[in-house]
Design a protein around this nucleic acid. Sequence first.
RNA 1: GCCCGGCUAGUCCAAUUGGAGAGACGCCGCACUUAGGAUGCGGAGGCUGUGGGUUCGAGUCCCUCGCCGGGUACCA
Length: 988
Amino acid sequence: MSETRGAGGAGERDTAASDIPPYRYTATLAGQIEPRWQDFWEENGTFHAPNPTGPLADASHPRAGAQKFFVMDMFPYPSGAGLHVGHPLGYIGTDSYGRYLRMAGRNVLHAMGFDAFGLPAEQYAVQTGTHPRKTTEANVERYRAQLRRLGLAYDDRRSVATTDVAFYRWTQWIFLRIFNSWYDTEQHRARPIADLISAFEAGARPTPDGRAWGELSPVEQRTVVNDHRLAYISEAPVNWCPGLGTVLANEEVTADGRSERGNFPVFRRSLKQWMMRITAYCDRLIDDLDTLDWPEPVKLMQRNWIGRSTGAHIDFAVGDQRGDFAVGDQRGDFAVGDQRGDSPTSAGPMRVFTTRPDTVFGATYMVMAPEHDLVDALVADAWPEGTKPAWTGGHANPREAVDAYRKFAAGKTEVERTAETRDKTGVFIGAFATNPATGEPIPIFIADYVLAGYGTGAIMAVPGQDERDWEFAEVFDLAIIRTVQPPEGFEGKAYLGEGPAINSASPTAGLSVDGLGVADAKAKTIEWLEANSAGQGAVTYRLRDWLFSRQRYWGEPFPIVFDETGLPIALPETMLPLELPDIDDFSPKTFDPNDADTSPETPLSRAREWVEVELDLGDGPKRYTRETNTMPQWAGSCWYELRYLDPTNDASFVDLENERYWMGPQSPSDSGGVDLYVGGVEHAVLHLLYARFWHKVLYDLGHITSFEPFRRLFNQGYIQAYAYSDERGMYVPAEEVSEVVEGGTTSYYYGEKKVKREYGKMGKSLKNVVTPDDMCAAYGADTFRVYEMSMGPLDVSRPWETRAVVGSYRFLQRVWRLVVDEATGEPRVVDVEIDPETERLLHRTIAGVRADMDGLRFNTSIAKLIELTNRATSVTAGGTPRALAEPLVLMTAPFAPHLAEELWQRMGHEHSLAYEPFPVADPALLVAESVTYPVQVNGKVRGRIEVAAEASEDEVRAAALAEVASALDGRDPRKVIVVVGRMVSVVV
RNA sequence: GCCCGGCUAGUCCAAUUGGAGAGACGCCGCACUUAGGAUGCGGAGGCUGUGGGUUCGAGUCCCUCGCCGGGUACCA
């Protein structure tokens, strides 16, 4: 070893080679050790986890039948840019945790996969003419190599990519299960569609129009069945994004109406698309959150996204003149998952949804969304007598006013609407509704503060108990009636709180809730509404069904064909996988991003020879047309955790017994699921909601035993980076910027130039990217791992600082030096006793490290190891006691596995330490022999006493009082507080 | 606007139920070196964002304000 220089790292760049002891732990040495152990682990299958059954079962494995632990990361999309140092933070965390648990006796399953379908590969393909599969596979290989270099203990047999045909075969299979299922609202679960058909055939379930099942034509029967499927085609308003050339799910559209990916404008268009009936699961998706060990903010975001509101539908009779009211038929209950926009279409009653039916007596006007279907039917020809000037918007008649307002509302972008500080706008439509409780006519307005997309698109306005309604009432000079008594001294406007109902009685209507609290008043009002056919209790949700089709090439094809009726038919499972056709022109048609009047066109539709197909689906060979949409990128990530369990299974997506072992419930009330799932919070509503939905369908159908996919979720923080820009706003290379502290303030210089620091993402354009490859070359993977884990708690975001990595490097060098003589390379571990004080520290460290590891507090765990190492360094000049070196190496192993394996071997062990028991503290050595108590007098420390650990409280008190006698100065202590093991406080 | 986090040394960050402020980077000094670096040893540096409250005692509990980050945005 004449040449020991690292690749320019670790501050050695100016050092003469001969000065460094030949056997020092350097980046070069790490670069030799690390690949060797990576090869060893791979060749020996060290991290293969045994299944209970199937090809991956192995009864001779040291952890066969042991208590399991399934740890997982959110798998990455393999982008062309490769990994930067921020990406592996969570992976190193789960790896360290998994290695620890494996040593602690658990059977640990940890695998990594790739979410490889998706837009970037396709966009790159369009630009370069490269097939997306080629780009994707190259990127996956690059990721695999980068991750392997970090020494992650994955079971490589279980790695999957969503683009593997063998994987998406099962994605398609699951789609077919969903397509062939319906939601039974009585049993509250998905059931096979065959059960529904049987029920129709037997007459046990009425058809929608009441005819006997046999009287329906085959096409009518199929249509009825299709309307119940959990995956269905619907013509409904969807998010059309011309810039991406595809439609998007609601979850993929930002609040200001743009695509989350690419930031293109999104337009509402009515199009025929595949939907997933996720709304059938609203209640379970909300209620089951309570069983999960997830960060509260994520649960909250899911609850908000699903948006369950409990209240009532109320029907208001309407008419265009006072006293002339059309009373229409009652509408039936809204089915769960009902798409809205389906408000009454004729001038029937005006149905509203409210969470406060108890305030109906305070409803002094009505508001519809400008787009509401009833507006055209109700708008009057002339302003009725008594119309206030403010109501007309200055227009000659209601029709003109409505047209003008609609134009005004439609012309505003979402951004403008929010920027306008919510000044209430709207216009009277010249018509009145009747308040069913008071019998009074109340005016109907249209206003954009009522959204077409929520509830029924219309509200009863109760200014007394609603801030928005109050504001509107003030602007338009409308009546305000309080129906809840605000508390004494209440000075606000609308009162939303608890209180007794007032002004809420009508002898003619037969309803009085006066004096009742809000909950009771609600219940009584709903009862009255139902008894008088004026409405009923109802629950609404903000969540809409999941738009599941995309007009892209690079996604899973739907295993669906259409026959001459245009109705979909599922391919039989024997025809799976349905592979993507290999076409030349896989580019989707994209459009001017701002052109709303365009329509999607699928790349697959151009593959005519694939689309037009002759198949025998049981009725003999017939011509069919294939579905040409593909599934969204989320499809593969909805179930990949299950495939890790049984990746080679050809007969099933996962064997039930394997699933039960790895993910099954651990107690009667347990949801089951992955034991620890680590990933970024950005998937709080998208991936995590979709994956829960699919999991529940599979659970309902009996394919799995867990009813939630991820029992415990942990959101890791992000590693961000500083970027520096000069006075022109140009970014300068971050690694060349120096920090200067002048008089308490810190400035940053690039050469002579002062530069401005900002904090944000790592990216090429900001000139602040640092890659794990750089760090491995400069310090080795172990140093990189230790640094990432010691920077701070896993859930906190922090800035990357290459400068500070050297601290972790020095720590590992000290550990190495404890075991290996730097001059000779010989072990310097000796079989002597540890001095008692160091031994106590060792056991305190063991106990502390275990507790920290269990709590995912890797940073403090490492701090304790550093303390122990520093202590050991200073007391082991003649050699390191084996009883100290071995536990230290074992405890370091989860973070610096290559170094630990190497040292373990050099200490004379033949086998990998991956399955060595993690050190256990001796409780006898955890208690100190003596305790130092600070003694406070009136809150200030005036002395210290050292007493035996088992000293009684009285002894401590006596010693303390003696110690501070001079400070007491003869005064009598009023009170003496002894906190055993902690301190003494004297009050005079 | 509303809802969550967070604020401890020049920097990143520790501190079980309230009970003498971990670790790392950087900085300074000493040893080893022709020197520098590396390594070893030692050291300095903090009225815990502001103002109040509860307590014998507050980084920790309560309230006010300020700053930073995230989510959400008229959801009836």
